[in-house]
Simulated assay, not measured.
Amino acid sequence: MSKSIVIGSTLAVLGLGGLAFGAYQIQATNSAPQYAEIINVERITDTVETPHEVCDNVAVTRQRPSKDPNRIAGTAVGAIVGGVLGNQVGGGSGKKIATAAGAVAGGFAGREVQGRMQQGDTYTTTEQRCRTVTDTQEQFKGYDVEYRIDGKVFDARLDEAPKGERVPLVDGKPQWQAAGEASKSSS
């Protein structure tokens, strides 16, 4: 064979191969998107409330129980003292009236004095008082990611936020889905 035929044939084969390779590259590039565009990323948390009981020891002042709740002793002593003092006033039948009036007034005064003394008879003790308190805590749930592939909008819940504005596609799905993350269409 002649040298020019060999060179021409070789160049023709190489040219056709190059042309075929270029056409393949154009077709592969235009056939499917290479990236998913991130539209929105939102951190998701839940508020968890945990009630529990808190108890404190509190000093409480109480009134002692009365041994004479009707205050008979104070009334009797007051009536005797009032009667003795009333007897010192006046003479004759006026003395009897003054004694009776002194006894009544003394009885009333004795009753009131005993009541005040009983109110002042107190003691202090410690009591436990409890109340319910609610602790509030934010619990991380993940990231809701909204993304677009070829004009369609999808969303996914991820453990980590994607980095950047685009995510590479693997077999037509965002790269995080290669590990089995679920997504749903919301277009």
Rank of each mutant, 00 (worst) to 15 (best):
R148T: 08
Q139H: 10
G151L: 02
R129H: 15
V133H: 03
C130L: 11
F154D: 04
I149L: 07
L158P: 00
A156M: 03
Q137A: 13
R148Q: 11
V153M: 04
R131N: 09
Y143W: 07
K141F: 08
C130V: 09
D155I: 00
C130T: 08
G142W: 00
Y147W: 04
E138K: 15
D155W: 07
F154E: 04
D135I: 08
V145I: 05
D150H: 06
A156C: 02
Q137R: 15
Y147H: 06
T134R: 08
T132S: 11
K152G: 05
V145N: 03
Q139P: 00
G142H: 00
G151A: 06
T136N: 08
G142I: 01
V145D: 00
Y147A: 03
Q139K: 13
D135Y: 01
E138N: 15
C130I: 07
Q137D: 14
D144A: 11
D155P: 03
K141W: 05
D144W: 10
Y147R: 02
E146I: 07
Q139L: 12
T132H: 08
Q137H: 08
Q128P: 10
F140L: 10
I149F: 08
V153L: 08
R129N: 13
D150Q: 06
D144Q: 14
F154C: 04
V145Q: 00
